[in-house]
Design a protein around this nucleic acid. Sequence first.
DNA 1: CTGAATCCATTTGGATACTG
DNA 2: CAGTATCCAAATGGATTCAG
Lengths: 125, 125
Amino acid sequence: MTQPLDPDMFDPICPSTLSPFRIGDKWAGMIIRCLEHGPRRFSELRIPLRGITAKVLTKSLRALERDGLVVRTAHAEPVRRVEYDLTPLGRSMLGPIAAMCAWAEQHWDELLDAREESLSLDRTG
Amino acid sequence: MTQPLDPDMFDPICPSTLSPFRIGDKWAGMIIRCLEHGPRRFSELRIPLRGITAKVLTKSLRALERDGLVVRTAHAEPVRRVEYDLTPLGRSMLGPIAAMCAWAEQHWDELLDAREESLSLDRTG
DNA sequence: CTGAATCCATTTGGATACTG
DNA sequence: CAGTATCCAAATGGATTCAG
């Protein structure tokens, strides 16, 4: 029932590193957002997470599991199939995460301006 | 007028790494909270930031400055005196930060439980 | 398909010594 | 006092190869 993940859900151009907020490791925040609308398979997560390697995705997922934010379910089927889903605890993070994103969106221009200004100061001053 | 910073303002026992949220680098979040009630001097910041080296504190402050979250003011006086203060942009982060802290406080036990359980699973399973 | 294993470059943070 | 300069260990993330 859940829609497939948009491959462009995370704009590769947009320097999200601009946001001072971070969730866990480099990918954790994006993974959580990928799970927002229901469980996802390992290979499914790799689509929007452009170019993440299996090793890194595994490590990130294991960390989320260890912290009780995500559950892993291995389905016994002819073709191997593993799904990851948010726990209630993980889901409870969506609110704060949305607040962080709202702040970042709201202050994006100021952040960009500050960086540009500091760059020009480096050059001229 | 501002009170001196509490040296124990950040409990060294409490594993704040437990919180999945992070602001900038390792120290940025704590620095911002230190500046909540007014400007602070370089050496003043080092008190609650137990054992931070001058180099690391400088680097962290420069990053906050570059992002427009903090301003640095060097006062021309007999004794050298430099103060750091939050910009309006930096101050606007206090809300989201408080939300993150509230979430962490509220779910602390669940986070601890999840870690402990994953540890015991490592041992037994 | 869902990883694990190995190797490697970069980044991060800290220890220490020195300076205007 | 408020840094800077060097050196260094550990962590992070990625590339590549292999496996059940």
